[in-house]
Nucleic acid binder design. Sequence first.
DNA 1: CCGATGTATATTGTATCCAATATCAGATCA
DNA 2: TGATCTGATATTGGATACAATATACATCGG
Lengths: 218, 218
Amino acid sequence: MKIQAFDISKAASATTIVFDALRQAIIKGDLKEGEHLRQDEIARAFNVSRIPVREALLKLEQHGLVRTQRYKGAVVSGLSLEEASEIFEFRALLEPEVIRRAVPRMTDAALAEARACCEAFARDENPMHWGDLNRRFHTTLYEASGLPYHMEMLNNAMDRIEPYLRAQLLLSDGMNRADREHRGIVEACATRDADRAAELTRAHILGARDSLRNQWQG
Amino acid sequence: MKIQAFDISKAASATTIVFDALRQAIIKGDLKEGEHLRQDEIARAFNVSRIPVREALLKLEQHGLVRTQRYKGAVVSGLSLEEASEIFEFRALLEPEVIRRAVPRMTDAALAEARACCEAFARDENPMHWGDLNRRFHTTLYEASGLPYHMEMLNNAMDRIEPYLRAQLLLSDGMNRADREHRGIVEACATRDADRAAELTRAHILGARDSLRNQWQG
DNA sequence: CCGATGTATATTGTATCCAATATCAGATCA
DNA sequence: TGATCTGATATTGGATACAATATACATCGG
C-alpha cells in the first residue's frame, strides 16, 4: 500500500465541524458573552440542517461554553470574576500534581519543544497567538504525566477561561512575567526537580488569578 | 397563589428523561460495559423518536459513560483499573481542598444531615443504596465550600467510578471501614478542624483506590 | 473447502416537516 | 396614558423520511 491512508471513521462529521468552529469562535472571542446562537442562522452559514447544529450546541453546553434554556436557545456564557477565579484555583490544584508526575518521565524532546514554545511565545508579536502558545507550552510539559483524565479536565477548564487568560497576558507586565515564569518551570523540569516545578506551576497559576482579580476590580 | 408552582422551563424534555434514565442504568450497572445502545431500540422503549435519544447519547458521551464511533453507535464504556485509579487520584486531589474550604462555613444543619447519612448508611441492608448514601454524604459536606465548578467535576468523576465504588463497598471490610472513616471526617468537621478533615478525606479516597487495586489484581 | 466479492439488511447521520413555545407589535379597556 | 390581552411571527423541540455507512450472509472462482 503506497497510498496515504488514515482512519476515515475519525473524519469530521457535520456535527463536529460545526462544534469545532463554534468552539474556536467562542474561545477566540469572536462570539461574545451573551450573544445568541440561532440554530437556523448557523445552519444556513454551514449549509447543513439544524440537526447537526443542535448537536454541536449540546456539546458546547456540556463544555460550559454556552447556556441553553428550553425553547429559548443558546447564548454564549461568560464567567463572573468569581467563576473565573474558581477555575484558576481548580488548575492550581491539578497542574502542580500533573507536572510533578510528568517530570521524571519527561523526554529531552519534550523539554526542547517546551523551550521552543517559550521562544515563540516571547517573539510572537501577535497577541492572538499567545493563548495558543501558552497552552501548547503547558500541554507539552504535562503529556508525560500519563494522566489523561486530568488532562481532559484541564483542557476543558482552559477553554472556559481562555478569554480571561488572553486579557491577562495583554496587561503591561502580563506577557513578560508569563515568559519569565515559563522559563523557570522548564528549567526546574530540566534539572528533574519535580517539587520545584510543581511549586512554580502553582505560583504561576495563582499569580495569574490574582493579577486578573486586580485588573477587574481596579 | 395557592398552587404549588415550579419553573416549567426546567421540566424534563424528552432528551433529559432519556439521558437520566440511561445514566442511572449505566451507573447502577443495569447496562454493562461493552453493551450496545441502539438508538431505535431505546426510542421505541421510551416512545419517542431517535432525535432525543441521539442527544441523550451525546450527553452520555461527553460524561464519558459511553463511547461512540461514527456509523457504529454507542457502547457503554467501562474503565480499566488504570483509568479508575486515576479518577480516584483526581478525587483525592480535589476533595480535601473542597472540604477544607467548606468546614468554616458548614452549618449545624449540614453536619446533622451528614450524620444522618452515616446512620442510614450503616443501617441500610440493601447494597444498592450504599452508593447513593455514600455520595449524599460527601455532597452534603462539600456544599458549603462555594466551589460549584469543583463540585460539578467531582460529580462527573463519581459517575464514572460508581460501579467500582459499589464493588469496593461490597468487600468484606469495605462497608465497615467506609463507615468508620465517614464518622471520623464528620467529627473533624464538627470540631472545625479543616486540615484534619482534609487529610482524613484524602486518606479515605486513596484507601478506597488501594483496596480496589488489591481486589482486582489479587 | 477457502477466500474474495457482491448483495441484503441493519444502523446511524442528516434533511425536511410539523408542533410547542416564546417574543413582540398592535388592539382594547380602565 | 398605561397596563393587559390578543394575535402574528420567530424560534426551538421533536417526528418522519431519506441518505450514507456498516454488518452479515450468500455467491462465486480457485
